[in-house]
C-alpha cells in the first residue's frame, strides 16, 4: 500500500499544533492510497475497497481505479478525505543529539581525543549480502556528495564486506582494536535485521568488559531509530544517512565517553 501525505498547519491551541493532509486546499485532508484485495474484480470488490477506506478514516472516499490482476485479485486506487488529525506536539522523533562537523573538524577532534587514528570496522552481518549501505558510508566514493569515512585522514577503515559472521566480527574488532563497529542491515525478511543486530550486540557484551566495548552503530532502511536500548547498540541510523553524520556522531560519542 502506498499513501502520500502533504501537510499544512491548520490550527494552534495551547502548544498543540494540529495539521491535516494537504491535497490542493488548506485543511482538505486529501490523501491517495493503493492496495490489493484477494477477490475477483466486480461490484462487490469495489464496495469492499470503499469499506476498507472508510475504516481507515477516509470519508468521503473515491474509488478512482480498479483493475483485475488475474482471476483472484483486484488492484485499487482510492482518493479521499481523512478524518484523522495530526498533533505535531505529540510527534516523537530522535533529534540529532550531536553537532554536524566537517571532515577537517572531525580529524582535528580525533587527534585531540585519541592522539592516534580512530579505528572503524564495517560489515554486513549474518546472511545479508547488501553492501550498498556500508559502502556508501565507508568507501571514499561516499554518498550524497559527501566523501566516505575512508577519506578521513584520522580514521582507519576496515571494511569487511558482506556476510560476516558475528564471532568473526568480534574477533576482528579485538584484533584491530576497533573504536567503533558499523553494521549495515538491509534484509528484513522474518525480522532478520533485528535478530542479527541483537545477536551482534550480545556477542560484544559477552566478549568485552563492561564499558569497554567499541561503539556499536547499525544502519539500514527499516530500523526504528529509537530502538537503541532494545537492540543493545549506541546509535541507529536510518535511510538517507550520510558519512558526515556518522563521522560526527562517532567523535561526539567518543568525547562523551571520555567525559564519563
Amino acid at each position: 500500500m502506498t499513501s502520500q501525505m502533504t501537510s499544512q498547519m491548520t490550527s494552534t491551541e495551547s502548544g498543540r499544533k494540529i495539521v491535516r493532509p494537504y491535497g490542493d486546499t488548506t485543511g482538505d485532508g486529501m490523501v491517495q492510497m493503493s492496495f490489493t484485495l484477494p477477490v475477483p474484480h466486480d461490484k462487490r470488490a469495489e464496495g469492499a475497497a470503499l469499506q476498507l477506506a472508510a475504516k481507515m478514516g477516509m470519508d468521503p472516499a473515491m474509488l478512482v481505479h480498479a483493475k483485475a490482476m488475474g482471476p483472484d485479485f483486484t488492484f485499487f486506487v482510492v482518493y479521499g478525505q481523512v478524518t484523522h488529525l495530526v498533533d505535531l506536539a505529540a510527534v516523537e522523533v530522535l533529534e540529532r543529539e550531536y553537532p554536524l562537523q566537517t571532515p577537517r573538524e572531525v580529524n582535528a577532534q580525533i587527534k585531540r581525543l585519541l592522539r592516534r587514528k580512530l579505528v572503524v570496522l564495517g560489515a554486513c552481518i549474518g546472511t545479508d549480502a547488501h553492501t550498498v549501505g556500508i559502502d556508501a558510508i565507508l568507501n571514499i566514493k561516499g554518498f550524497a556528495g559527501e566523501k566516505g569515512l575512508e577519506y578521513y585522514r584520522e580514521i582507519k577503515v576496515v571494511n569487511l564486506g558482506a556476510q560476516v559472521l558475528v564471532p568473526e566480527l568480534v574477533a576482528l574488532a579485538r584484533a584491530e582494536k576497533a573504536d567503533a563497529v558499523l553494521v549495515s542491515q538491509v534484509v528484513t525478511q522474518r525480522d532478520a535485521h533485528l535478530k542479527n543486530t541483537r545477536e551482534m550486540s550480545a556477542a560484544f557484551r559477552e566478549s568485552y568488559p563492561s564499558g569497554q566495548r567499541p561503539l556499536l552503530v547499525v544502519g539500514g532502511p527499516r530500523f526504528d531509530e529509537l530502538a537503541t536500548a532494545d537492540l543493545g547498540v549506541d546509535r541507529i541510523f536510518g535511510r538517507g544517512t550520510t558519512p558526515g553524520e556518522v563521522a560526527s556522531f562517532l567523535v561526539h560519542a567518543l568525547a562523551h565517553r571520555k567525559d564519563r
Partner: peptide, 13 residues
C-alpha cells in the same frame, strides 16, 4: 525496489 519485497500489484504495474 529497495522498499519492500514487491507486492503483487507492483509486479502487475
Amino acid at each position: 525496489e529497495a522498499v519492500v519485497t514487491p507486492f503483487l500489484s507492483d509486479r502487475d504495474l
